[in-house]
Design a protein around this nucleic acid. Structure first.
Length: 277
DNA sequence: CGGGACGCCTGTGAGC
DNA sequence: TGCTCACAGGCGTCCC
């Protein structure tokens, strides 16, 4: 579920409420992808700082006077979502695997598939956080990621451009929905080898990726099943998807039937007429 | 080293 | 109705 826009939506929805919030307790449910990496009690008394996002990871600094610095690195995996609950929250359900109880409310992680994770790290640039972020490419909105820089990075990759976007080492943020949508917007066939993309087309791809992610962010992300921000607000981008999940339906631009293929074990949707090799 | 498959989990919807 | 199968927003790890 959560690709860059959804994670950023979540970050914004918890940043103000949790900045300055004091941790009272942390309750764990079923195991997530990785262990927390510290004793839950070690977090009590720490105070939330400004949240950051890197790729699809969220970083929540938790400071404490006289103690080592640290914070929590969150990843929502495929089915994770966060909810900020008021005083006296409902008891956790079977898929609520972590409650961060603070004096400003309880931040609850809901994640049926448990591909998500919450990991304590003393900082972003030290283990374990650093290892998890090590292979991430540049942020899509980083001004240093110029059309030329993207083109140069794509030229080093022989895999299909769709797979390269998903891999996240050339540029982070696009998951299956937005990779498909950005390629449609750029008029690029998803199976085209990345190293065969011309400079002008790389420029179009970068612009399309930014426009797609930016639009999704404005609309609160995509809610396919049950994604919402920490206040329960659903996203609206999914209704605007031009190709994702629309196999067999007419392309919104040319009317040709949208196709579904499989690349790297993932579904890819595209318009065979609008997207050229 | 790059690229692709696998595995981690649970839920849902389609088809028989 | 009930079963089985394919598939679902991600990504670290393993093998070729």
């Amino acid at each position: 579920m959560p690709e860059l826009p959804e994670v950023e939506v979540v970050r914004r929805s918890i940043d103000v409420p949790l900045r300055g919030a004091r941790v009272l307790a942390l309750r764990l449910g079923k195991p997530l992808r990785w262990p927390l990496g510290c004793a839950p009690a070690d977090l009590a008394g720490r105070v939330g700082g400004p949240g950051q996002r890197r790729g699809k990871y969220l970083w929540m600094p938790l400071a404490a006077d006289g103690r080592e610095p640290g914070g929590l690195l969150w990843h929502l995996g495929m089915s994770g979502s966060l909810a900020l609950l008021g005083a006296g929250p409902a008891p956790p359900g079977p898929h609520d695997h972590l409650d961060l109880v603070t004096d400003r409310g309880t931040l609850r992680l809901h994640d049926p598939r448990r591909f998500g994770a919450v990991v304590f790290s003393r900082g972003l640039d030290v283990a374990p956080a650093a290892a998890l972020l090590a292979r991430l490419g540049p942020e899509p909105f980083d001004p240093a990621l110029t059309p030329l820089a993207l083109h140069a990075a794509l030229r080093r990759r022989r895999a299909a451009v769709k797979s390269v976007l998903l891999a996240g080492d050339v540029v982070v943020g696009a998951g299956n929905i937005y990779a498909c949508e950005a390629l449609f917007a750029a008029g690029i066939h998803p199976a085209l080898r990345a190293d065969r993309i011309s400079r002008p087309r790389a420029a179009r791809l970068l612009a399309a990726l930014r426009a797609t992610l930016g639009r999704a962010l404005e609309l609160g992300g995509s809610t396919l099943r049950d994604f919402s921000d920490a206040h329960g607000a659903a996203g609206a981008y999914q209704a605007q998807a031009a190709v994702y999940g629309r196999a067999g339906q007419p392309c919104l631009r040319c009317g040709a039937a949208v196709r579904r293929i499989v690349q790297g074990q993932r579904s890819t949707f595209f318009c065979p007429a609008c997207q050229k090799r």
